[in-house]
């Protein structure tokens, strides 16, 4: 296994993912470089989650290639992901985090200290001993963030991290994402909440039917969309 000096930038070169005769991602060309968060938007089924999985290395492209820091097949040492519905290990909140630390190869002596830090970062230190599966949806989402950050990632993928959360919980999660981004961790996030995209994004990538229809800085994308698809979508109309 070759380890690149950095797993960034992540470059998609003609990446296509097809399964059972359905094309989920179609000839994607995209570069994810260090910097402000990249937000993927687009209707349900547009391929956002699949793009994140390919970028994470969980899914191999059917055609095309993807490189991390210029290399192919790089194991995710410096990448982490929070799924839309993160699975909670049947352990305490703290044990969920220390499990991730162990998986990331962090020496055991540092587990207690790092677990404490991470739980504090996501505001769960008071719930450290609570069974993870007994936490609320927002708490589980924050615990999943702590678990992902335990990997000390250079890039963090988030798949609709605030879907189905109430505004208070959403704000808590967004605050963490902002804090993460300020630590120079590249955030790549899928959402279909425009407000969230505006609040967090540096750059926006819009997907439709597995294709990238438009990319741009957040301000220009929302204020002056270039493509009819983006205009329809942003106008709140059904994009078919």
């Amino acid at each position: 296994m070759r380890a690149p000096s950095s797993e960034l930038p992540i470059e998609f070169d003609g990446v296509t993912v097809a399964a059972g005769g359905v094309t989920i991602l179609d000839n994607i060309a995209l570069t994810l470089a260090p910097g402000a968060p990249t937000v993927l938007i687009g209707p349900n089924g547009s391929g956002k989650s699949t793009l994140l999985r390919v970028a994470m290395g969980l899914l191999a492209p059917s055609r095309g290639r993807i490189t991390w820091g210029g290399l192919e097949n790089v194991p995710p040492h410096k990448r982490a992901i929070v799924f839309q519905r993160p699975a909670m290990l049947r352990r305490s909140a703290a044990a969920n985090v220390s499990f991730a630390l162990r998986a990331a190869g962090v020496p055991r002596a540092e587990h207690a200290r790092r677990t404490g830090e991470l739980l504090r970062l996501v505001g769960l230190e008071a719930l450290a001993d609570r069974a993870a599966r007994r936490l609320s949806g927002g708490e589980q989402q924050r615990l999943a963030l702590a678990r992902a950050l335990a990997r000390d990632p250079a890039v963090l993928f988030l798949d609709e991290p605030t879907a189905s959360l109430d505004p208070v919980a959403t704000k808590a999660v967004e605050d963490i994402i902002r804090a993460v981004s300020e630590r120079n961790i590249k955030v790549v996030m899928a959402t279909h909440d425009f407000g969230e995209a505006r609040r967090l994004a540096g750059e926006v990538v819009m997907l439709h039917r597995g294709r990238i229809v438009e990319t741009g800085a957040v301000a220009s994308f929302f204020d002056a969309p270039q493509t009819p698809e983006a205009r329809t979508f942003l106008a709140g109309e059904l994009l078919i």
Binding site: M56, L58, A80, F83, P86, F99, A103
Partner: peptide, 24 residues
């Protein structure tokens, strides 16, 4: 249930089995 998480944590086969047995 765990597949995506454990894969994303880059856990080897032994680690996966151990985690699953422990949690089950």
């Amino acid at each position: 249930e765990y597949r995506d998480e454990l894969t994303a944590m880059n856990l080897g086969p032994f680690g996966r089995v151990a985690a699953l047995i422990w949690d089950a």
